[in-house]
Every structure is written in C-alpha cells, then in structure tokens.
C-alpha cells in the first residue's frame, strides 16, 4: 500500500451530498481488468460534455467548462472537500483508483459510505471525517481563495488551513499505522496463519455444513 504521512496540497471543493460511485467512475469504465488508468474518466459524466467510453482518445473529449475540476485554478488539486455520504453506492474500488490516479490523496467530508471508506485506505487515499459545518466552511474558503492549500498530517491527525486553523480528525489506530508505514494488509494477516487454521478446524467440527461444497 502507498504510504501517507503528511501533505500540503491544493484543495478543490465539491460540496454536495451523496456523491455516488457511479458518478465518480461510471460503469462503462469498470470493464477494465487493470488497476490503473481510471483518472482520465474520474467524474466522467460531469467532467465532459460528450459521452465517455473505454479506449477513447482523451484529447478528443469535450471538457465541461462548468465542472469544478476543469477550472485552471484547481489543476493539480490533491484534496477534495465534499458533502455528506461521499462514495455511496457500489463497492467498486475503481472509484478510489480513479481518485488516486487523478492525483487526489485525501477526501474530506462529513461522512463516507462504509465500503468506500474501507477501500480508500487500501490505496493510500485518506478519507477524513470533519463536522458538516467545518466541511462547509472549508469548501467556502476554498472557493473564495485561489491557491487554497490544506496541510494534512496523519501522524498528528490534523488538517491545518492556510489561516493556521487546526482541525483534528479521528482514524483507527490500526489503519493509521498501516497507512503511515505503507503496510500490506494481506502480509500482516498471514502472520496469523496459525490462528486462522485453529479457528477453521474448530469450526469444521462444530458446523461442518459451512464447509460443504458442491
């Protein structure tokens, strides 16, 4: 997993609720069997005026000038400030891969959909939950201030605004540790191989029907 320690980066506001994974990366791009290359189709239906399909030449697309990320001032943004329930909808990790591939390292929102939240950590994209009024204020300041950069420190669990205002956030210790050190979950879990095997053999005796196959 990609490590995350601290970034000081340009933010972009997309302050609306229920940004779903279909909007983040539309289904036609899920046909890919790869993990990379989703960034050009991030928010495809909002970002372009023409309809997107896999394998298109990105230079042939018609960007929607109204869409926030198409504005020059947000080029290179690494932090997205959003509304409630970000990432709701499907389990597609492609949504995280698309955000990551585009260049985002963190999303700040009042709440995240559960599966998206889990997925984000796996690619080193840090989901930060801050109170709704704080998110609204950050989004507003971001819109009103060109070059609005947030300082995100995972070690300290803080987001610092350009004015020096510090907002603390919560994150599971285990996840923070994995992210700070870029640890591979599967490798860690396999260190507990014996425990898994012991559980399995006890269970196999107690409830053998769980192990039936056809």
């Amino acid at each position: 997993m990609k490590a995350f320690t601290q970034i000081k980066a340009l933010a972009a506001p997309m302050h609306r609720s229920n940004i779903d994974t279909d909007a983040i990366i539309p289904k036609q791009f899920l046909k890919s069997i790869k993990r990379s290359g989703f960034g050009v189709n991030l928010f495809d239906a909002w970002r372009y005026l023409d309809e997107g399909f896999p394998g298109q030449d990105p230079n042939s697309r018609q960007p929607n000038p109204e869409f926030v990320l198409n504005q020059a001032r947000y080029a290179g943004a690494q932090v997205l400030i959003s509304g409630d329930n970000f990432g709701c909808g499907s389990s597609r990790e492609h949504a995280v891969w698309a955000l990551d591939d585009y260049g985002f390292r963190s999303v700040i929102a009042p709440s995240f959909a559960d599966i998206f939240h889990n997925n984000a950590f796996k690619s080193g994209l840090l989901p930060i939950v801050l109170p709704a009024d704080v998110c609204a204020k950050l989004a507003e300041d971001c819109e009103n201030t060109e070059g609005y950069r947030l300082d995100i420190n995972l070690q300290a669990k803080t987001v610092t605004t350009p004015d020096g205002e510090v907002h603390s956030f919560d994150v599971d210790e285990f996840r923070r540790d994995c992210l700070l050190n870029g640890l591979d979950d599967i490798g860690l879990t396999l260190q507990k191989r014996n425990r898994i095997e012991n559980y399995e053999s006890t269970r196999r005796t107690a409830a053998p029907w769980l192990f039936n196959s056809q």
């Binding site: 993990r35 499907s90 389990s91 597609r92 990790e93 492609h94 995280v96 559960d114 599966i115 889990n118 997925n119 796996k122 690619s123 599971d172 285990f174 979950d185 599967i186 879990t189 396999l190 898994i196 399995e200």
Partner: peptide, 22 residues
C-alpha cells in the same frame, strides 16, 4: 456485506477480513 477488490484479494488469500464492528 459488499467489499472492494483489495478486500476480495484479502479474503482469497487469508479467508478473513479486517473489520470493525458496526
């Protein structure tokens, strides 16, 4: 419950998932 692709790989490799109780 639904899981993402990294978790799919985790379950394939370990028959387990890292979870917190809701």
């Amino acid at each position: 419950f639904g899981i993402g692709t990294s978790e799919v790989e985790h379950v394939m490799a370990t028959q387990t998932l890292l979870q917190k109780k809701s």
